[in-house]
């Protein structure tokens, strides 16, 4: 059902954990839907120096989080904000159709963390001008 890459990132997820004094923290998802992702960013000079994640979710959600953190680690925030779920899926060698939304969650978690960073620092990140954190009361599960 899952590719080798998914299983690898699920079994040995990279960058698991939380972070004290993170520069940006984003959380998306809802326990009601069975998935929550939280991303912590350490940003220095507009570069993502470190990233950690915590995920409550299915195998594909864990693998997507892990892959997403790998894809943005060391990148500039302007590169990171362009991370798409498609890129995550591709890097994972594909996801089953019903599991594609888990990668969307990863994309949103990254954006949410960057948005938090932007808010805290007053910076404007291209692409996040109109970013609206999802309202918890308005959740639609996949």
């Amino acid at each position: 059902m899952y590719t080798e890459a998914v299983m690898d990132h699920f079994r040995n997820p990279r960058n698991v954990g939380s972070m004290e004094n993170a520069d940006g923290v984003g959380q998306v998802g809802n326990p009601k839907c069975g998935d929550i992702m939280k991303i912590y960013l350490k940003i220095n000079d507009e570069t993502i120096e470190d990233v950690k994640f915590e995920t409550f979710g299915c195998g594909s959600a864990i693998a997507s989080s892990s892959m997403a953190t790998e894809l943005i680690k060391g990148k500039s925030i302007n590169e990171a904000v362009e991370l798409t779920n498609k890129a995550v899926v591709e890097a994972l060698g594909g996801l089953p159709p019903v599991k594609v939304h888990c990668s969307v969650l990863a994309e949103q978690a990254v954006k949410s963390a960057l948005f938090d960073y932007a808010q805290k620092t007053g910076k404007v990140i291209k692409g996040l001008e109109n970013y609206e954190p999802i309202d918890d009361d308005d959740i639609h599960c996949h």
């Binding site: 899952y2 699920f10 069975g34 998935d35 409550f56 299915c58 195998g59 959600a61 864990i62």
Partner: peptide, 14 residues
């Protein structure tokens, strides 16, 4: 509590 079923199943399968 705090964990999701599918990931448990995948790890059990291993």
């Amino acid at each position: 509590k705090y964990v999701e079923g599918e990931s448990i199943l995948l790890l059990l399968d291993m």
